[in-house]
Simulated scan of single mutants.
Amino acid sequence: MNGYDLTGRTALVTGGARGLGAGMAAALGRAGAAVAVADRDAEAGKATAEALVADGVRAEFVALDVTEDAQWEAAVAAVVASFGGLDVVVNNAGVEISGLVVDLDPADVRTMLEINVLGTALGVKHAFRAMRPGGAAGQGGSVVNIASVAATIPFPGIAGYSATKSGVDRLTRVAALESGKLGYGVRVNCVYPGLVATEMGLRLAADMQTLGLWPSPEAAVADVIGLTPLGRLGEVADMADAVVFLASDAARFITGAGLPVDGGMGM
C-alpha cells in the first residue's frame, strides 16, 4: 500500500456539492475512500454523490448546514452508521463576501463568521467526538480545514473574509494541540488555496471591478497571476491533491500545519 491509499477509510467533505469541495470528494474517492458529500444544497449534493458512484466510488449525500450543531451531530451519526466509521473530515464549506472596510456590512461579516469559523469549529468538534477513543468511530483520523491564501497576505476588498480564514488557521493549530495532548489520535491541518477559477473565484474577480479596485475582472486576475511565482491560477486538482496528502498516511507525522497551495503567492 502506498502512502496515499485511503482504501477502507471514510471521508466527509463539507461544501461537497460543487467547486473545490466536489473536486476534493472526487480525489478522496479516487484514492480509495468512501465519501460522504455534505452540503445544504440537496439537489447539487445528490448529483455530485451520484456522479461519484458512477465512477466506482462508494458515496452518499448527507444534508448538512455547517452552522447548526444538531445537524453536525446527525450527519456524523448517519455517516458512521452507513459506512461503518469516519476517518477524514474536510471542512471546506465557506463563503466570501467582498467589500471595502469603509463600507463594512455587519450582516455580511456575521455570515462569514458563522460559516467559515463556526462551521469549521463545529466540524472539528464532531470529528473529535467521533474519532477519539470511545467515540462512534474511535480509530483516530485526520481533519483538513480549508483556509485561504487570504489568511497569509493582505488583499484589498476582502477584509472580512481574510479575518475569518485567519481564524481557521488559528483554530487548526489549537485543535491539533488539544488532540495531541488529550490522546485523540486525530491530526488537524489546514490548506491555504490560492485563487481558483471556480464560481466563487470568478465572482471575487468581478467584485474587484465593482468595488473600483481594478478596471476589470481580467485585470484583477492578471495581477493575481503576476503575484504568483508559478505564473498561473490554481486548479481544483491542485487543492484536492493536497487534501488527499494531508488525509493520508504520507502525512502521518504532520499536524498543526498550514500547507500553502498558492503557487508561491503567499510566501
Rank of each mutant, 00 (worst) to 15 (best):
M1L: 15
M1F: 13
Y4A: 08
D5L: 02
L6A: 06
T7G: 14
R9F: 14
R9C: 00
R9V: 09
T10R: 00
A11M: 11
L12V: 00
R18W: 11
G21W: 02
A22S: 12
A22K: 02
A22G: 10
A22P: 10
M24I: 15
M24L: 07
A25G: 05
A25M: 03
A26W: 06
A27R: 08
A27H: 03
V37Y: 05
D39A: 13
D41T: 09
A44H: 10
A44M: 11
E50L: 11
V53S: 11
V53K: 07
R58P: 14
A59M: 14
V66I: 11
D69G: 03
A74D: 10
A74S: 14
V79M: 04
V79G: 03
A81K: 06
G84N: 09
G85N: 02
L86I: 04
V90E: 08
A93N: 00
V95H: 11
V102A: 15
D105K: 13
P106V: 13
V109N: 12
V109M: 12
M112D: 08
L113C: 10
E114I: 00
E114L: 02
V117P: 11
L118T: 14
L122A: 09
L122N: 06
A127F: 06
R129S: 12
R132P: 10
A137N: 13
Q139L: 13
A147D: 02
V149M: 11
A150S: 15
A151Y: 04
I153T: 08
I158C: 06
A159M: 00
K165H: 06
V168K: 03
V168N: 00
R170Y: 07
L171V: 05
L171T: 02
T172K: 00
T172E: 05
R173T: 12
R173P: 03
R173N: 01
V174S: 14
V174H: 13
E178H: 15
G180C: 11
G185E: 11
R187L: 06
Y192R: 07
V196L: 02
A197W: 10
E199G: 12
E199H: 04
E199Y: 01
E199R: 11
A205Y: 02
A206P: 05
D207S: 04
Q209S: 14
P215F: 01
S216A: 13
E218N: 12
A219E: 15
D223C: 00
P229T: 12
L230T: 14
R232I: 08
R232Q: 09
R232N: 10
A237F: 03
D238Q: 12
D241H: 13
A242E: 03
A242N: 01
V244P: 07
F245P: 05
L246W: 07
R252C: 05
I254C: 04
I254L: 10
A257S: 02
V261G: 06
V261E: 00
D262C: 09
